[in-house]
């Protein structure tokens, strides 16, 4: 597998108040690959994900040490603006969270604010392109003015993905994007992720090991805030090096 490092995490530690939630993480995440983060609840995989677009900055008690180097620049450097990090590193959440606005406004909101497009046909084109990109254009093209909150859960999640790619990020973080969805919607989102990785680097947290096996190129197994094992997905699932990983994969704990 040809691998270009997109995100280089070096010696990352994170505390919530007194409690250390991440311990000495060192990991390279690769361009145009899907990396799945797996592990039992509370293992730090979602916390780690939120370090990659500085969403942990929003938690007052969080203290972060170490480097997250994206395109050669540590995003925790003083001269880096967390807002511009989030422009480049998009995020999709566990629960679909479309804004209580129309479908069109949901997509157009951020690009307009960022000045990526101007109001009018330029913006219309971007909305269409993003909805196409999220594979939902055909379903909503006649109801762009309708509230996004009226859609089904799976559709809402794809609106959220469309909203994210409309900002033209390099990296998309997904925090258990299908755990709130039914199997058919899940399948659609998974297919979409495989499509998206051609253009973006994707890091996804998942509880569902079959999902990781189905879609991920790389898999990282977390336990108690530590990265236990990180390798190509096949290796992790077929031939894990660590006993803990094997126990988890085979369902002995978790």
């Amino acid at each position: 597998m040809k691998k270009n490092t997109k995100i280089n995490v070096k010696d990352l530690n994170l505390w919530y108040g007194e409690k250390q939630a991440l311990h000495n993480l060192d990991v390279k995440l690769y361009e145009n690959k899907i990396t799945a983060l797996i592990g039992p609840s509370g293992c730090g995989k979602s916390t780690f994900l939120r370090c990659l677009n500085r969403m942990n900055d929003l938690v007052d008690s969080a203290k972060i040490e170490g480097n997250v180097i994206i395109d050669g620049k540590n995003i925790y450097d003083k001269d880096v603006d967390e807002v511009s990090v989030r422009k480049r590193v998009g995020m999709v959440f566990q629960q679909p969270n479309p804004f209580p606005k129309s479908i069109y406004e949901n997509i157009a909101y951020a690009p307009l604010k960022h000045g990526i497009v101007k109001k009018g046909s330029e913006c219309d084109d971007l909305v269409e392109e993003s909805l196409h990109g999220a594979g939902i254009w055909d379903e909503v093209k006649d109801s762009l003015k309708e509230p996004a909150t009226g859609l089904s859960g799976g559709q809402q999640q794809r609106i959220c993905i469309a909203r994210t790619i409309a900002v033209k990020p390099d990296i998309i973080l997904m925090d258990e994007p299908t755990s709130a969805l039914d199997p058919i919607s899940t399948e659609k989102i998974e297919a979409l992720m495989l499509e998206l990785k051609k253009k973006y680097t994707i890091v996804t947290v998942t509880h569902n090991m079959q999902q990781a096996a189905r879609i991920a190129d790389m898999t990282a197994f977390f336990h108690l805030g530590k990265l236990i094992e990180y390798d190509e997905t096949e290796t992790i699932f077929v031939n894990p090096k660590e006993k803990k990983t094997e126990d988890y994969i085979t369902g002995r704990f978790g």
Binding site: G72, K73, I75, D79, V80, D81, V83, K87
Partner: peptide
């Protein structure tokens, strides 16, 4: 590192901040 080398440097953010 100079501003030009910083991939996250975005002058348009100044006004928004």
């Amino acid at each position: 590192m100079s501003k030009e080398m910083n991939p996250f440097y975005d002058p348009s953010l100044k006004k928004r901040h």
